[in-house]
């Protein structure tokens, strides 16, 4: 029946392209929007607005509407850069309210299996920022996956050629968890990175 209404069929198939949305959810969303035309208008306007107004910051490559972004142009510590893989990671760091420096979004990570090399992510741009001479510290906050670790190791090798303090986010036992339920590798990492108190 849906094939008779080509516009609805197209909307459903577009929804299905979104992560985690299947046929039934896509249908439910489409019918929900059809019931309230004002919501449909607002959604379509929001989609067009986000397409037209958002882009990458020319300094840190975070998602922004202004250039440079509010963090790069704001009153932050520009001598300290936190390197993250993607804008979502940057948002997570911002939620913590613990970082007062600026960011650099790599837009990916090194992946020998996927064939993603150093030239495919924003490493050159980071090195240019660091070699400008105004940077004193780089905090590498790539993910703790094999690809994230590979990226961190590669960056460390390159950044050692510059006079900057390099650090990596600590990793270990999550807040509020019991040690008996933590896996062996995490306990091993936590012991290796233990702090004197």
């Amino acid at each position: 029946m849906l094939t008779n209404i080509s516009s609805l069929s197209r909307l459903v198939s577009e929804f299905k392209k979104l992560p985690g949305v299947g046929e039934r959810t896509a249908l439910r969303m489409a019918f929900h929007l059809l019931k309230s035309p004002s919501n449909l208008t607002m959604l379509s306007e929001a989609l067009l607005e986000v397409r037209d107004r958002t882009h990458s910051c020319s300094v840190c490559f975070a998602l922004t509407e202004d250039d440079p972004c509010s963090i790069c142009s704001g009153n932050r510590d520009h001598k300290a850069i936190c390197v993250v893989e993607n804008p979502q990671d940057m948002m997570a760091m911002e939620r913590s309210n613990a970082w007062h420096g600026v960011y650099h979004v790599l837009e990916g990570s090194l992946s020998p299996l996927a064939g993603t090399g150093p030239e495919d992510i924003r490493i050159d741009e980071l090195l240019k920022r660091v070699s400008s001479g105004n940077v004193e510290e780089v905090v590498i906050a790539t993910n703790f996956t094999v690809e994230g670790e590979a990226t961190a190791l590669f960056l460390t090798k390159l950044l050692r050629q510059h006079k900057v303090r390099i650090s990596r986010l600590a990793h270990g036992i999550p807040l509020g968890s019991d040690i008996e339920f933590v896996d062996a590798a995490t306990v091993q990492w936590a012991l290796q990175g233990r702090n004197e108190i």
Partner: peptide, 12 residues
């Protein structure tokens, strides 16, 4: 996991 060359060879 703590050496880039090792990661690349293991992935290979």
């Amino acid at each position: 996991r703590s050496d880039l060359a090792k990661i690349c060879n293991a992935m290979y």
